[in-house]
Design a binder for these strands. Structure first.
Lengths: 224, 224
DNA sequence: GGGTGTCTTGACGGGGTCTTGACGCGTCGG
DNA sequence: CCGACGCGTCAAGACCCCGTCAAGACACCC
Protein backbone atom coordinates (compact mmCIF):
# COMPACT_ATOMS: atom_id res chain seq x y z
CA UNK A 1 0.00 0.00 0.00
CA UNK A 2 2.48 2.62 1.16
CA UNK A 3 6.14 2.72 2.02
CA UNK A 4 6.75 3.66 5.65
CA UNK A 5 10.08 4.66 7.12
CA UNK A 6 10.15 3.94 10.86
CA UNK A 7 12.87 5.69 12.88
CA UNK A 8 13.37 4.35 16.39
CA UNK A 9 16.24 3.02 18.51
CA UNK A 10 14.19 0.55 20.53
CA UNK A 11 14.43 -2.89 18.85
CA UNK A 12 11.30 -4.17 20.58
CA UNK A 13 9.15 -1.27 19.47
CA UNK A 14 10.67 -1.47 16.02
CA UNK A 15 9.71 -5.11 15.79
CA UNK A 16 6.17 -4.50 16.96
CA UNK A 17 5.74 -1.63 14.51
CA UNK A 18 7.17 -3.63 11.66
CA UNK A 19 4.75 -6.49 12.25
CA UNK A 20 1.70 -4.27 12.62
CA UNK A 21 2.53 -2.11 9.64
CA UNK A 22 3.21 -5.13 7.45
CA UNK A 23 -0.10 -6.63 8.53
CA UNK A 24 -1.79 -3.39 7.50
CA UNK A 25 -0.33 -3.80 4.02
CA UNK A 26 2.53 -1.35 4.22
CA UNK A 27 6.08 -1.73 3.06
CA UNK A 28 8.37 -1.06 6.02
CA UNK A 29 11.87 0.38 6.10
CA UNK A 30 13.56 1.00 9.46
CA UNK A 31 16.36 3.23 10.69
CA UNK A 32 17.89 3.09 14.19
CA UNK A 33 19.16 6.69 14.45
CA UNK A 34 18.88 10.16 12.99
CA UNK A 35 21.76 10.16 10.52
CA UNK A 36 20.77 6.87 8.92
CA UNK A 37 17.17 8.05 8.92
CA UNK A 38 18.07 11.05 6.79
CA UNK A 39 20.16 8.90 4.49
CA UNK A 40 17.53 6.20 4.11
CA UNK A 41 14.76 8.70 3.55
CA UNK A 42 16.62 10.20 0.60
CA UNK A 43 17.32 6.74 -0.74
CA UNK A 44 14.03 4.89 -0.55
CA UNK A 45 11.60 7.82 -0.98
CA UNK A 46 9.06 6.76 1.68
CA UNK A 47 5.43 7.86 1.52
CA UNK A 48 5.39 8.62 5.23
CA UNK A 49 7.88 8.77 8.10
CA UNK A 50 7.23 7.60 11.67
CA UNK A 51 9.81 9.37 13.77
CA UNK A 52 10.74 8.78 17.39
CA UNK A 53 12.02 11.94 19.04
CA UNK A 54 14.31 10.17 21.49
CA UNK A 55 17.19 9.15 19.24
CA UNK A 56 20.76 8.42 20.35
CA UNK A 57 22.60 10.72 17.95
CA UNK A 58 20.41 13.60 16.81
CA UNK A 59 17.54 15.43 18.41
CA UNK A 60 14.20 14.62 16.83
CA UNK A 61 13.60 18.19 15.73
CA UNK A 62 16.97 18.16 13.98
CA UNK A 63 15.89 15.16 11.96
CA UNK A 64 12.66 16.95 11.13
CA UNK A 65 14.60 20.01 10.05
CA UNK A 66 16.81 17.87 7.84
CA UNK A 67 13.82 16.12 6.34
CA UNK A 68 11.48 18.99 5.68
CA UNK A 69 13.35 21.01 3.07
CA UNK A 70 12.78 18.29 0.49
CA UNK A 71 10.49 15.64 1.96
CA UNK A 72 6.90 16.62 1.23
CA UNK A 73 5.13 13.57 2.65
CA UNK A 74 3.65 13.37 6.13
CA UNK A 75 5.75 12.84 9.25
CA UNK A 76 4.20 11.24 12.33
CA UNK A 77 6.17 11.92 15.50
CA UNK A 78 6.40 9.41 18.31
CA UNK A 79 7.59 10.52 21.74
CA UNK A 80 7.63 9.63 25.41
CA UNK A 81 7.29 13.27 26.36
CA UNK A 82 3.67 14.27 26.85
CA UNK A 83 4.40 17.90 27.63
CA UNK A 84 2.43 20.19 25.37
CA UNK A 85 5.40 22.45 24.68
CA UNK A 86 7.21 19.49 23.13
CA UNK A 87 4.19 18.79 21.00
CA UNK A 88 3.92 22.38 19.82
CA UNK A 89 7.60 22.45 19.00
CA UNK A 90 7.48 19.26 16.95
CA UNK A 91 4.27 20.19 15.13
CA UNK A 92 5.61 23.61 14.22
CA UNK A 93 8.85 22.04 13.07
CA UNK A 94 6.88 20.25 10.37
CA UNK A 95 5.37 17.17 12.01
CA UNK A 96 1.87 16.24 10.89
CA UNK A 97 0.89 14.37 14.02
CA UNK A 98 2.27 13.67 17.48
CA UNK A 99 1.62 10.48 19.43
CA UNK A 100 2.83 9.94 22.99
CA UNK A 101 4.23 6.64 24.21
CA UNK A 102 2.91 4.32 25.32
CA UNK A 103 0.44 4.33 22.49
CA UNK A 104 -2.32 2.10 21.20
CA UNK A 105 -1.32 0.41 17.98
CA UNK A 106 -4.80 0.65 16.48
CA UNK A 107 -4.80 4.38 17.09
CA UNK A 108 -1.38 4.80 15.52
CA UNK A 109 -2.50 2.93 12.42
CA UNK A 110 -5.64 5.06 12.22
CA UNK A 111 -3.60 8.26 12.50
CA UNK A 112 -1.31 6.93 9.82
CA UNK A 113 -4.29 6.30 7.56
CA UNK A 114 -5.52 9.81 8.29
CA UNK A 115 -2.28 11.55 7.30
CA UNK A 116 -1.84 9.30 4.26
CA UNK A 117 -5.38 10.03 3.11
CA UNK A 118 -4.41 13.64 2.57
CA UNK A 119 -2.41 12.59 -0.46
CA UNK A 120 1.29 11.89 -0.65
CA UNK A 121 3.27 15.07 -1.03
CA UNK A 122 0.89 17.78 -2.05
CA UNK A 123 2.60 20.53 -0.18
CA UNK A 124 5.48 22.71 -1.20
CA UNK A 125 6.21 24.08 -4.64
CA UNK A 126 3.78 22.04 -6.67
CA UNK A 127 4.64 23.52 -10.04
CA UNK A 128 7.80 24.42 -11.91
CA UNK A 129 7.65 27.28 -14.38
CA UNK A 130 9.97 28.27 -17.22
CA UNK A 131 9.57 30.78 -20.02
CA UNK A 132 8.35 28.12 -22.41
CA UNK A 133 6.57 25.49 -20.38
CA UNK A 134 5.18 24.78 -16.92
CA UNK A 135 5.15 21.48 -15.04
CA UNK A 136 2.41 21.06 -12.45
CA UNK A 137 3.64 18.25 -10.23
CA UNK A 138 0.44 17.96 -8.19
CA UNK A 139 -1.97 17.91 -11.13
CA UNK A 140 0.45 15.94 -13.28
CA UNK A 141 -0.02 18.36 -16.13
CA UNK A 142 2.41 20.00 -18.54
CA UNK A 143 1.59 23.06 -20.60
CA UNK A 144 3.72 24.52 -23.40
CA UNK A 145 2.89 28.13 -24.22
CA UNK A 146 -0.33 27.73 -22.27
CA UNK A 147 -1.55 24.69 -24.22
CA UNK A 148 -1.70 21.38 -22.36
CA UNK A 149 0.59 18.65 -23.66
CA UNK A 150 0.02 14.91 -23.28
CA UNK A 151 2.87 12.93 -21.75
CA UNK A 152 3.10 9.15 -21.57
CA UNK A 153 3.63 7.59 -18.13
CA UNK A 154 7.32 6.98 -18.78
CA UNK A 155 7.86 10.47 -20.11
CA UNK A 156 6.17 11.92 -17.06
CA UNK A 157 8.16 9.80 -14.62
CA UNK A 158 11.40 10.90 -16.23
CA UNK A 159 10.47 14.55 -16.43
CA UNK A 160 9.27 14.75 -12.85
CA UNK A 161 12.52 13.23 -11.63
CA UNK A 162 14.49 15.90 -13.45
CA UNK A 163 12.22 18.77 -12.58
CA UNK A 164 12.18 17.89 -8.91
CA UNK A 165 15.89 18.67 -8.80
CA UNK A 166 16.18 22.02 -10.63
CA UNK A 167 19.73 22.90 -11.56
CA UNK A 168 21.12 19.73 -10.04
CA UNK A 169 22.75 17.04 -12.13
CA UNK A 170 20.86 13.76 -11.96
CA UNK A 171 22.96 10.68 -12.72
CA UNK A 172 21.79 8.23 -15.35
CA UNK A 173 21.80 5.40 -12.87
CA UNK A 174 19.65 7.52 -10.57
CA UNK A 175 17.17 8.20 -13.33
CA UNK A 176 17.01 4.64 -14.59
CA UNK A 177 16.45 3.32 -11.12
CA UNK A 178 13.73 5.83 -10.36
CA UNK A 179 11.79 5.29 -13.59
CA UNK A 180 12.42 1.70 -14.65
CA UNK A 181 13.68 0.07 -11.47
CA UNK A 182 17.03 -1.17 -10.17
CA UNK A 183 17.28 -3.92 -12.83
CA UNK A 184 17.59 -1.40 -15.67
CA UNK A 185 20.58 0.57 -14.40
CA UNK A 186 22.61 -0.19 -17.55
CA UNK A 187 19.96 0.55 -20.18
CA UNK A 188 21.14 4.03 -21.03
CA UNK A 189 19.35 3.62 -24.36
CA UNK A 190 16.08 4.34 -22.70
CA UNK A 191 17.29 7.68 -21.45
CA UNK A 192 18.40 8.75 -24.90
CA UNK A 193 15.09 7.77 -26.47
CA UNK A 194 12.88 9.42 -23.89
CA UNK A 195 14.97 12.52 -23.42
CA UNK A 196 14.63 13.05 -27.16
CA UNK A 197 10.86 12.69 -26.90
CA UNK A 198 10.68 15.10 -23.99
CA UNK A 199 12.78 17.65 -25.82
CA UNK A 200 10.61 17.28 -28.90
CA UNK A 201 7.53 18.00 -26.80
CA UNK A 202 8.89 20.71 -24.53
CA UNK A 203 11.92 22.45 -25.97
CA UNK A 204 11.46 25.41 -28.32
CA UNK A 205 14.37 24.06 -30.39
CA UNK A 206 14.83 20.33 -29.70
CA UNK A 207 18.15 20.22 -31.56
CA UNK A 208 19.66 22.76 -29.15
CA UNK A 209 18.13 22.06 -25.73
CA UNK A 210 17.68 25.02 -23.47
CA UNK A 211 16.22 23.33 -20.39
CA UNK A 212 17.05 19.62 -20.58
CA UNK A 213 20.82 19.52 -20.87
CA UNK A 214 23.02 16.48 -21.39
CA UNK A 215 26.14 16.00 -19.32
CA UNK A 216 28.07 13.41 -21.33
CA UNK A 217 29.00 10.35 -19.34
CA UNK A 218 27.28 11.68 -16.22
CA UNK A 219 23.59 12.31 -16.60
CA UNK A 220 21.11 15.05 -17.32
CA UNK A 221 20.26 18.41 -15.81
CA UNK A 222 17.15 20.57 -15.84
CA UNK A 223 17.95 24.29 -15.71
CA UNK A 224 15.06 26.73 -15.28
CA UNK B 1 -5.59 33.94 8.20
CA UNK B 2 -8.12 31.13 7.92
CA UNK B 3 -11.81 30.69 8.51
CA UNK B 4 -12.54 28.20 11.29
CA UNK B 5 -15.89 26.64 12.01
CA UNK B 6 -16.12 25.56 15.65
CA UNK B 7 -18.87 23.09 16.54
CA UNK B 8 -19.55 22.69 20.26
CA UNK B 9 -22.49 22.90 22.62
CA UNK B 10 -20.54 24.15 25.64
CA UNK B 11 -20.76 27.98 25.72
CA UNK B 12 -17.70 28.29 27.97
CA UNK B 13 -15.48 26.23 25.73
CA UNK B 14 -16.87 28.00 22.70
CA UNK B 15 -15.96 31.33 24.22
CA UNK B 16 -12.45 30.22 25.08
CA UNK B 17 -11.89 28.80 21.61
CA UNK B 18 -13.24 31.91 19.95
CA UNK B 19 -10.88 34.15 21.88
CA UNK B 20 -7.82 32.00 21.31
CA UNK B 21 -8.51 31.45 17.63
CA UNK B 22 -9.16 35.16 17.08
CA UNK B 23 -5.90 35.96 18.84
CA UNK B 24 -4.15 33.55 16.48
CA UNK B 25 -5.48 35.53 13.55
CA UNK B 26 -8.33 33.26 12.48
CA UNK B 27 -11.84 34.16 11.48
CA UNK B 28 -14.24 32.21 13.71
CA UNK B 29 -17.72 30.90 12.99
CA UNK B 30 -19.50 28.82 15.61
CA UNK B 31 -22.31 26.28 15.59
CA UNK B 32 -23.99 24.81 18.68
CA UNK B 33 -25.21 21.50 17.22
CA UNK B 34 -24.82 19.08 14.33
CA UNK B 35 -27.61 20.21 12.02
CA UNK B 36 -26.63 23.86 12.15
CA UNK B 37 -22.99 22.80 11.74
CA UNK B 38 -23.78 21.11 8.43
CA UNK B 39 -25.84 24.09 7.31
CA UNK B 40 -23.23 26.66 8.30
CA UNK B 41 -20.40 24.68 6.78
CA UNK B 42 -22.10 24.67 3.38
CA UNK B 43 -22.84 28.35 3.77
CA UNK B 44 -19.60 29.93 4.92
CA UNK B 45 -17.07 27.51 3.34
CA UNK B 46 -14.66 27.27 6.26
CA UNK B 47 -11.01 26.34 5.72
CA UNK B 48 -11.10 23.99 8.69
CA UNK B 49 -13.69 22.55 11.07
CA UNK B 50 -13.17 21.96 14.81
CA UNK B 51 -15.81 19.41 15.75
CA UNK B 52 -16.89 18.28 19.20
CA UNK B 53 -18.17 14.72 19.14
CA UNK B 54 -20.58 15.16 22.04
CA UNK B 55 -23.36 17.11 20.40
CA UNK B 56 -26.98 17.25 21.57
CA UNK B 57 -28.71 16.31 18.33
CA UNK B 58 -26.43 14.27 16.09
CA UNK B 59 -23.62 11.88 16.76
CA UNK B 60 -20.24 13.32 15.87
CA UNK B 61 -19.54 10.68 13.26
CA UNK B 62 -22.85 11.52 11.60
CA UNK B 63 -21.73 15.11 11.25
CA UNK B 64 -18.46 13.88 9.81
CA UNK B 65 -20.31 11.68 7.35
CA UNK B 66 -22.46 14.60 6.30
CA UNK B 67 -19.46 16.84 5.90
CA UNK B 68 -17.04 14.57 4.10
CA UNK B 69 -18.83 14.03 0.80
CA UNK B 70 -18.12 17.58 -0.23
CA UNK B 71 -15.93 19.26 2.37
CA UNK B 72 -12.31 18.69 1.41
CA UNK B 73 -10.68 20.76 4.14
CA UNK B 74 -9.33 19.33 7.37
CA UNK B 75 -11.54 18.38 10.32
CA UNK B 76 -10.13 18.38 13.84
CA UNK B 77 -12.20 16.35 16.26
CA UNK B 78 -12.59 17.27 19.90
CA UNK B 79 -13.87 14.72 22.37
CA UNK B 80 -14.06 13.83 26.04
CA UNK B 81 -13.72 10.15 25.20
CA UNK B 82 -10.10 9.02 25.32
CA UNK B 83 -10.81 5.44 24.30
CA UNK B 84 -8.73 4.43 21.32
CA UNK B 85 -11.65 2.76 19.56
CA UNK B 86 -13.43 6.10 19.50
CA UNK B 87 -10.36 7.69 18.03
CA UNK B 88 -10.00 5.05 15.34
CA UNK B 89 -13.64 5.39 14.46
CA UNK B 90 -13.49 9.15 14.11
CA UNK B 91 -10.22 9.14 12.18
CA UNK B 92 -11.48 6.54 9.74
CA UNK B 93 -14.70 8.49 9.34
CA UNK B 94 -12.66 11.31 7.87
CA UNK B 95 -11.22 13.27 10.77
CA UNK B 96 -7.69 14.60 10.35
CA UNK B 97 -6.85 14.81 14.03
CA UNK B 98 -8.35 13.85 17.36
CA UNK B 99 -7.81 15.79 20.57
CA UNK B 100 -9.17 14.64 23.93
CA UNK B 101 -10.64 17.01 26.48
CA UNK B 102 -9.35 18.56 28.59
CA UNK B 103 -6.78 19.83 26.15
CA UNK B 104 -4.01 22.38 26.13
CA UNK B 105 -4.92 25.37 24.01
CA UNK B 106 -1.38 25.82 22.69
CA UNK B 107 -1.37 22.23 21.51
CA UNK B 108 -4.73 22.61 19.81
CA UNK B 109 -3.52 25.67 17.96
CA UNK B 110 -0.36 23.85 16.92
CA UNK B 111 -2.37 20.91 15.62
CA UNK B 112 -4.58 23.34 13.76
CA UNK B 113 -1.53 24.90 12.16
CA UNK B 114 -0.29 21.43 11.23
CA UNK B 115 -3.48 20.37 9.45
CA UNK B 116 -3.86 23.77 7.78
CA UNK B 117 -0.30 23.62 6.50
CA UNK B 118 -1.25 20.62 4.38
CA UNK B 119 -3.85 22.36 2.25
CA UNK B 120 -3.56 26.14 2.39
CA UNK B 121 -5.88 27.82 -0.11
CA UNK B 122 -8.16 24.90 -0.80
CA UNK B 123 -11.72 26.02 -0.42
CA UNK B 124 -14.09 23.11 -0.76
CA UNK B 125 -16.94 24.03 -3.03
CA UNK B 126 -20.23 22.27 -2.46
CA UNK B 127 -21.04 22.09 -6.16
CA UNK B 128 -19.15 21.93 -9.42
CA UNK B 129 -20.58 23.52 -12.52
CA UNK B 130 -19.70 23.08 -16.18
CA UNK B 131 -21.42 24.23 -19.35
CA UNK B 132 -23.26 20.95 -19.71
CA UNK B 133 -23.82 19.56 -16.25
CA UNK B 134 -23.62 20.44 -12.57
CA UNK B 135 -22.59 18.23 -9.69
CA UNK B 136 -23.97 19.09 -6.26
CA UNK B 137 -21.63 17.34 -3.87
CA UNK B 138 -23.60 18.17 -0.75
CA UNK B 139 -26.99 17.08 -2.09
CA UNK B 140 -25.56 14.21 -4.14
CA UNK B 141 -27.38 15.35 -7.21
CA UNK B 142 -26.34 15.69 -10.84
CA UNK B 143 -28.20 17.67 -13.45
CA UNK B 144 -27.53 17.67 -17.20
CA UNK B 145 -28.93 20.68 -19.04
CA UNK B 146 -31.07 21.41 -16.01
CA UNK B 147 -32.65 17.96 -15.86
CA UNK B 148 -31.74 15.73 -12.91
CA UNK B 149 -29.91 12.50 -13.77
CA UNK B 150 -29.93 9.30 -11.73
CA UNK B 151 -26.53 7.88 -10.83
CA UNK B 152 -25.87 4.51 -9.24
CA UNK B 153 -23.90 4.52 -5.96
CA UNK B 154 -20.74 3.36 -7.70
CA UNK B 155 -21.08 5.91 -10.45
CA UNK B 156 -21.54 8.63 -7.88
CA UNK B 157 -18.54 7.56 -5.83
CA UNK B 158 -16.36 7.60 -8.90
CA UNK B 159 -17.64 10.91 -10.19
CA UNK B 160 -17.28 12.67 -6.87
CA UNK B 161 -13.68 11.50 -6.57
CA UNK B 162 -12.89 12.99 -9.96
CA UNK B 163 -14.89 16.16 -9.55
CA UNK B 164 -13.38 16.93 -6.18
CA UNK B 165 -10.00 17.34 -7.88
CA UNK B 166 -10.76 19.58 -10.86
CA UNK B 167 -7.95 19.66 -13.37
CA UNK B 168 -5.83 17.27 -11.37
CA UNK B 169 -4.97 13.84 -12.69
CA UNK B 170 -6.30 11.12 -10.42
CA UNK B 171 -4.41 7.84 -10.65
CA UNK B 172 -6.31 4.65 -11.33
CA UNK B 173 -5.01 3.08 -8.15
CA UNK B 174 -6.21 6.14 -6.26
CA UNK B 175 -9.68 5.84 -7.75
CA UNK B 176 -9.98 2.11 -7.25
CA UNK B 177 -8.92 2.40 -3.65
CA UNK B 178 -11.33 5.22 -2.95
CA UNK B 179 -14.35 3.60 -4.57
CA UNK B 180 -13.89 -0.15 -4.21
CA UNK B 181 -11.27 -0.44 -1.46
CA UNK B 182 -7.58 -1.33 -1.29
CA UNK B 183 -8.19 -4.94 -2.40
CA UNK B 184 -9.32 -3.85 -5.86
CA UNK B 185 -6.28 -1.82 -6.82
CA UNK B 186 -5.62 -3.98 -9.88
CA UNK B 187 -9.15 -4.18 -11.27
CA UNK B 188 -8.78 -1.50 -13.89
CA UNK B 189 -11.71 -3.10 -15.70
CA UNK B 190 -14.09 -1.42 -13.33
CA UNK B 191 -12.80 2.01 -14.18
CA UNK B 192 -13.25 1.44 -17.88
CA UNK B 193 -16.81 0.21 -17.44
CA UNK B 194 -17.95 2.98 -15.13
CA UNK B 195 -16.14 5.78 -16.87
CA UNK B 196 -17.98 4.75 -20.03
CA UNK B 197 -21.29 4.86 -18.14
CA UNK B 198 -20.52 8.26 -16.67
CA UNK B 199 -19.57 9.64 -20.07
CA UNK B 200 -22.75 8.22 -21.57
CA UNK B 201 -24.77 10.02 -18.92
CA UNK B 202 -22.88 13.29 -18.69
CA UNK B 203 -20.87 14.03 -21.81
CA UNK B 204 -22.50 15.80 -24.76
CA UNK B 205 -20.55 13.47 -27.05
CA UNK B 206 -19.50 10.32 -25.17
CA UNK B 207 -17.22 9.19 -28.00
CA UNK B 208 -15.13 12.34 -27.64
CA UNK B 209 -15.08 13.25 -23.95
CA UNK B 210 -14.87 16.91 -23.13
CA UNK B 211 -14.80 16.76 -19.33
CA UNK B 212 -13.76 13.25 -18.31
CA UNK B 213 -10.45 12.71 -20.02
CA UNK B 214 -8.35 9.56 -20.08
CA UNK B 215 -4.61 9.69 -19.53
CA UNK B 216 -3.46 6.29 -20.78
CA UNK B 217 -1.47 4.34 -18.25
CA UNK B 218 -1.91 6.99 -15.56
CA UNK B 219 -5.50 7.73 -14.70
CA UNK B 220 -8.34 10.10 -15.41
CA UNK B 221 -8.82 13.84 -15.24
CA UNK B 222 -11.89 16.04 -14.88
CA UNK B 223 -11.43 19.38 -16.63
CA UNK B 224 -14.10 22.04 -16.12
C1' DG C 1 -41.05 -15.79 -5.48
C1' DG C 2 -40.68 -12.79 -9.29
C1' DG C 3 -38.93 -8.57 -11.21
C1' DT C 4 -35.91 -4.76 -11.63
C1' DG C 5 -31.73 -2.66 -11.42
C1' DT C 6 -26.88 -2.84 -10.22
C1' DC C 7 -22.50 -4.95 -10.04
C1' DT C 8 -19.08 -8.15 -11.67
C1' DT C 9 -16.57 -10.58 -15.15
C1' DG C 10 -14.89 -11.97 -19.58
C1' DA C 11 -13.79 -11.31 -24.49
C1' DC C 12 -12.65 -8.58 -28.45
C1' DG C 13 -10.67 -4.98 -31.63
C1' DG C 14 -8.05 -0.91 -32.18
C1' DG C 15 -4.82 2.37 -31.01
C1' DG C 16 -1.03 3.95 -28.45
C1' DT C 17 3.17 2.89 -25.89
C1' DC C 18 7.31 0.54 -24.83
C1' DT C 19 11.17 -1.99 -26.19
C1' DT C 20 14.88 -3.01 -29.18
C1' DG C 21 18.18 -2.65 -32.70
C1' DA C 22 20.62 -0.12 -36.24
C1' DC C 23 22.76 3.98 -38.09
C1' DG C 24 25.17 8.55 -38.27
C1' DC C 25 27.52 12.06 -35.86
C1' DG C 26 30.64 14.28 -32.72
C1' DT C 27 34.27 14.03 -29.26
C1' DC C 28 38.07 12.11 -27.07
C1' DG C 29 42.15 9.42 -26.72
C1' DG C 30 45.63 6.54 -28.68
C1' DC D 1 44.89 9.68 -38.52
C1' DC D 2 41.94 6.34 -36.81
C1' DG D 3 39.22 3.68 -33.59
C1' DA D 4 36.28 3.70 -29.43
C1' DC D 5 32.75 5.59 -27.04
C1' DG D 6 28.65 8.11 -26.04
C1' DC D 7 24.78 10.50 -27.76
C1' DG D 8 20.74 11.60 -30.89
C1' DT D 9 17.60 9.80 -34.29
C1' DC D 10 14.62 6.68 -36.47
C1' DA D 11 11.73 2.73 -37.38
C1' DA D 12 9.52 -1.71 -36.58
C1' DG D 13 7.52 -5.19 -33.88
C1' DA D 14 5.74 -6.75 -29.46
C1' DC D 15 3.08 -5.55 -25.99
C1' DC D 16 -0.16 -3.20 -23.02
C1' DC D 17 -4.06 -0.44 -22.27
C1' DC D 18 -8.48 1.41 -23.37
C1' DG D 19 -13.35 1.47 -24.96
C1' DT D 20 -17.14 -1.44 -25.92
C1' DC D 21 -20.42 -4.98 -25.45
C1' DA D 22 -22.89 -8.61 -23.37
C1' DA D 23 -23.97 -12.20 -20.21
C1' DG D 24 -24.21 -13.89 -15.63
C1' DA D 25 -24.37 -13.04 -10.50
C1' DC D 26 -26.24 -10.57 -6.97
C1' DA D 27 -29.12 -7.53 -4.04
C1' DC D 28 -33.18 -5.25 -3.22
C1' DC D 29 -38.14 -4.31 -3.37
C1' DC D 30 -42.69 -5.41 -4.07
Amino acid sequence: MSRVLVVDDDPHLLRALRISLRAAGHEVVTAPDGTSALRDAAEVHPDVVVLDLGLPDLDGTEVLAGLRPWFTGPVLVLSARADSTDKVEALDAGADDYVTKPFDMAELLARLRAVLRRGPGETGEASVVTDHFTVDLAAKQVTVDGAPVRLTPTEWALLSELVRAPGRLVGQRELLQAVWGPAYERETNYLRVYLAQLRRKLEPNPAHPRYLHTEPGMGYRFTP
